[in-house]
Design a protein around this nucleic acid. Structure first.
Lengths: 135, 135
DNA sequence: TTAAGGGTTCCATCTACTGGAAGGTCAAGA
DNA sequence: TCTTGACCTTCCAGTAGATGGAACCCTTAA
C-alpha cells in the first residue's frame, strides 16, 4: 500500500496530478490511512499508469474514464474500445490537417519575408489584409 | 465610430471577444461615449481584424501583442516580425511531429483491434503495458 | 524537542475565451 | 409619456487539465 508520493513515483505522474485524479474521481485511492493519507493498492497504481498512458495519447479525461471502465470490465467488447480510439484518431487527423494548412501558409509568409531592418513585411501585410480570405 | 456590436460585426469577432480584448489591453477602443459605451474608430477596427487573423494563425495573445506593436510601428524591422513568425512555425512543426507520432501509434492499435464483442483488445493491452515504453 | 520531509485542504493561476445575471441606455411606436 | 426591445455596461462563474503555494497536520530520526 503506497501513499501519494510513492504512488506518484510508481505511476510516473506528479503528486499533484495523482491527487487531482482522486479529486475528480478518475482514479480514487483504495482508502485512507488513520491520519487521512491516501493509500493506493497495486490495482490503483495500474489504473494510474493506464490513465497516464491514455492521456499521453491525448485522450480527454472523460475518454480516460470510459477507457478505464472498459479496462476494469473484463467482459468488455473490444468494439467499444475501438470506437473510442477511432473517435480520438478522427480528432487527431482533423487537428493534423488544420496544423498542416497553417504550417503551409505560415512558412510561405516566413520565406517571403526578407527579415532585414526594413519595415516591408509580407507577414504584416497578409495579417492586415490577406490575399484570399473569402475563399 | 462604431460601438461594440458594430465593431464585432466589422471585425468578424464575437462581441464578447472584442470586450475581452479591450479588457486585457490587446485592442482598446478609441474612447467611450457619454453613456460609457465603447467606441471604435477605423484604426481600431483594423487592429481587431489583424488580431483575429493572427489568432487564426495560432499566435498567442502575447505574440499578437508583439505583432500589433510591429503592425502599428511603421519604422519596424521585418526581422522582428520574421522572428516571431519563425518561433510560431517552430511550435507548429513540433506539434505536427507529436501529432504524427500519435496518429501513427494509435492507428496501428485501431487496426489491430478486431472491434467485435470479445474482450481481447490490443488498445487496452497497450495502454496497460505498452511494448516499448523505455525506448 | 525539534527539524526535516512527508501528508492534508483550499484557493489562485494559467489560456482564451464564453455564458449569464443584473441593470443602464436608446430609438421607435402607441 | 410610456413601453418595448435591442442595445450596452460590469461582474462572476465556468471551460480542460492541471500546477503552485499557503497554512496546517503527521511521522520519524537525531
Amino acid at each position: 500500500m503506497l501513499n501519494v508520493g510513492a504512488a506518484a513515483k510508481a505511476s510516473g505522474l506528479p503528486k499533484k496530478t495523482v491527487r487531482y485524479y482522486a479529486d475528480i474521481g478518475l482514479v480514487e485511492p483504495s482508502g485512507r490511512s488513520e491520519a487521512g493519507y491516501r493509500v493506493y493498492a497495486e490495482a490503483e497504481i495500474q489504473k494510474l499508469i493506464f490513465a497516464r498512458r491514455a492521456r499521453a495519447f491525448g485522450f480527454s479525461i472523460d475518454a480516460c474514464r470510459e477507457l478505464l471502465d472498459l479496462y476494469t470490465d473484463t467482459s468488455r467488447s473490444s468494439a467499444d474500445v475501438k470506437r473510442i480510439a477511432e473517435r480520438r484518431l478522427g480528432e487527431l487527423y482533423a487537428k493534423m490537417r488544420d496544423l498542416q494548412a497553417l504550417c503551409d501558409e505560415l512558412s510561405i509568409l516566413v520565406e517571403a519575408c526578407r527579415g532585414d531592418d526594413r519595415p516591408d513585411c509580407p507577414i504584416i501585410t497578409t495579417l492586415a489584409a490577406p490575399p484570399r480570405e473569402g475563399g
